[in-house]
Simulated assay, not measured.
Amino acid sequence: MRFSLVLAHPEPAPGDIPEEAVTQMQDAFGTYGRALEESGVLVAAEVLVPTASATTITLRNGALEVQDGPFAETKDALAGIFVIDVPDLDAALGWAEKCPGASYGLVEVRAAATSFVDGAWTDGCRLT
């Protein structure tokens, strides 16, 4: 089953985090990513730029609307995502617990309902 580990945390202002701490966290995420990869469960991983760099589009009102910045202002901002393929929720929770981002933010674990793989949609899990 595919699960997304969605990382969110309050966005620090430039200079709020000492460079040494940034380097340590980058090293921790490198170790985490390699562990996921070596275990054969990593599908993809993305670290996102700050929300100030986001552009949001919608067609909800019948015409294209483009907005600079995030869709909604929230305390915690989407910071990155790991997509993993593991046997069950317990395995996904185990990997989420090991994620360095859990030490300063949130890791939301969510099963994929369907996945687009090799040009086709496939069943992820059946929600009941």
Rank of each mutant, 00 (worst) to 15 (best):
K98W: 01
A35H: 11
M1F: 04
N61E: 15
H9E: 11
A45G: 14
Q24I: 03
G15Y: 05
S53V: 01
P70W: 08
P12S: 13
G80L: 02
D76A: 14
S39H: 10
M25Q: 10
L127V: 05
V6D: 01
P12N: 08
S115P: 00
L89D: 02
T23Q: 11
G94I: 08
G30W: 02
F116M: 06
K75T: 15
E37L: 12
G119Q: 00
F29C: 10
W121R: 00
G101P: 02
F82G: 03
L7D: 08
Q26E: 08
F3I: 00
M25N: 12
R126L: 02
T55I: 07
L127W: 00
D90A: 14
G105M: 07
F71S: 13
Q67L: 14
D90W: 00
A35Y: 12
A113Q: 07
D118L: 06
K75F: 02
P87R: 02
A54C: 09
I57W: 06
R126H: 03
V49H: 09
A63S: 15
E38F: 04
G105L: 06
D16W: 10
Q67K: 15
T114R: 07
L89K: 11
Q24V: 05
Y104T: 13
L48F: 01
T23I: 05
A13G: 11
P12I: 08
E46D: 13
T55Y: 03
A113H: 04
W121Y: 01
I17L: 11
L5T: 05
A120E: 01
R60E: 10
P87V: 01
V43N: 06
G69L: 10
P70H: 07
S53G: 10
T55D: 04
V107K: 05
A72S: 12
Y104H: 14
L106K: 09
W121L: 04
A54D: 11
I81Y: 09
D90E: 12
P87M: 02
D88W: 00
G94N: 14
V109N: 04
A45V: 06
T51G: 15
L59Y: 14
P70F: 13
G105P: 08
A92F: 00
A52Q: 11
A120Y: 00
A13Q: 15
A8W: 00
V49S: 14
D123Y: 00
I81G: 07
E19D: 14
T122E: 09
T51M: 08
A21D: 13
D76N: 15
G94K: 10
G30P: 04
D123H: 01
R2I: 03
F71N: 12
A52D: 09
I17Q: 11
G33F: 09
A21P: 02
